[in-house]
């Protein structure tokens, strides 16, 4: 009885924590200034949030098979969310999404991949940097 109650409390806390992490990633998606910081927020926080939710599901609905599936899902999630955000940030840089003006050492700026040459004008997040191009 009490063990069942403890399992319910721990599992529920993990579910709520995971949902809270994903919601905070969404707040970061609104408030952060450019594509790269947004990608960073989604890639880390969503991977962690989904992993916490999977742990909560396994705790609440426990069996050996569910534990195995949960471990596989968490490993896959943590690996692939990083890959996805990396690929998205890379293609964003290649297609001309500019970082904010405070990105001081932009080491790709002089290379052929620089978005300064062929940029999609996004107008709002650029600030004073657009005057120099």
């Amino acid at each position: 009885m009490t063990a069942e109650l403890a399992v319910t409390i721990v599992g529920s806390a993990l579910l709520i924590l995971g949902a809270f992490v994903i919601a905070s990633a969404a707040i970061g998606l609104i408030r952060l200034p450019d594509l790269y910081t947004r990608t960073s927020a989604i890639g880390t926080a969503a991977g962690l949030g989904v992993s916490l939710i999977i742990v909560g599901v396994v705790v609440l609905d426990f069996s050996a098979l569910n534990l195995l599936k949960g471990v596989i899902a968490i490993v896959a999630q943590l690996l692939t969310s990083a890959i996805g955000s990396f690929a998205l940030a890379r293609s964003g840089y290649l297609t001309g999404s500019r970082p904010v003006a405070t990105t001081a050492p932009d080491e790709l700026a002089d290379s052929a991949a620089s978005p300064r040459d062929r940029q999609i004008d996004d107008g709002r997040a650029l600030g004073d940097d657009s005057a120099t191009s």
């Binding site: 998205l88 297609t95 999404s97």
Partner: peptide, 9 residues
Amino acid sequence: GPTPGDTAV
């Protein structure tokens, strides 16, 4: 928006 990358993320 403003860029397609933001939509994708």
